[in-house]
Nucleic acid binder design. Structure first.
Lengths: 156, 156
DNA sequence: TGATTTTGTAGGAGCTGCTTACAAAACTGA
DNA sequence: TCAGTTTTGTAAGCAGCTCCTACAAAATCA
């Protein structure tokens, strides 16, 4: 016993237990698989940029909101403060973000993009646009609207 | 300059640039946020189990497919071989999975759950069921069907 | 039989995320 | 005004997930 099953070969991938069986009903798993697929697509196609989607999100957010503080970054991207710090520090080291202490509230530090940061953000935005085109290309405009609406319901 | 913006306070969180501005149109970001929210919910509510959703997925898959090999696990859960190995090793160390070499193909190793593994899987399944109830509770049956269909389109 | 493929192993690396503890500045209210 | 609370940034550490590379053993194919 222990081997009374078919050997898993090429044929098993498509037939066999038909993928993952009952696990396939789990919505949480679907979400994780989609997340993984999107992540992978970005890494494969735009990995040479040297930035992750998360890093670009931070860059983008700071670019759109100069003077923003770390706490806000964390909040708006649904991250822990400490996690946001890690991202920000990395971007600072690479010379893409600057900091100037806030005058009105000396506890806060206001972040802006550097020239280099702006430049990179422009390139990153076009990469994201391509990536988004691939992603949204799976859907009609109506489906896209529905999908956005349904997804947002989880975390809003 | 650098401080000609409103100080980010309580009021900024709801108003200001209305969250994340243009970034909000990015579907990829929605997916990441949903993924994060789901992850967080599971960790907060079922963290005491001591297992991640991913680990449970592996356990579940092996429980439903005794004799499965590492390569198949990786394929069916959309992971790298090395990643699957890490998970499997962890579960073996905890005494939840066993291995017996396959007789028909001596390269392969057939995995099964141990008694302890079966027991834990049962508990894990009920945790997943609760978690799923929370997740799917955001939707009507019709929406759920739509959502599953739309999500699957990305990775199938 | 010899070359190729599949499978499992092992080490290393990076990103993300969390917790905890700490220090400095600001805010609150008596 | 001043003591207590809150907010903000910092730092260190730990864990999980993911991927890459290189290697050895066994099976398969030609």
């Amino acid at each position: 016993m222990g081997d009374n099953r078919k050997r898993a070969g090429k044929d098993d991938k498509a037939s066999g237990t038909a993928g993952i069986g009952e696990l396939d009903t789990i919505l949480g798993l679907h979400i994780r698989r989609v997340h993984g697929a999107v992540q992978r697509h970005f890494a494969e196609h735009f990995g040479e940029l040297g930035f992750t989607q998360k890093q670009i999100s931070v860059l983008w957010l700071v670019g759109s909101n100069p003077g923003i503080a770390q706490t806000d970054i964390a909040q708006r991207l649904d991250m822990d403060r400490a996690t946001a710090m890690t991202l920000v520090h990395g971007l600072e080291k690479r010379g893409l973000m600057q900091r100037t202490p806030s005058e009105s509230d000396r506890r806060r530090i206001a972040f802006q993009l550097t020239g280099k940061g702006e430049e990179l953000l422009a390139r990153a935005k076009s990469a994201i646009a391509e990536h988004e085109a691939w992603l949204t290309g799976h859907y009609t405009p109506g489906e896209l609207k529905t999908l956005r609406k349904l997804l947002a319901r989880i975390y809003r």
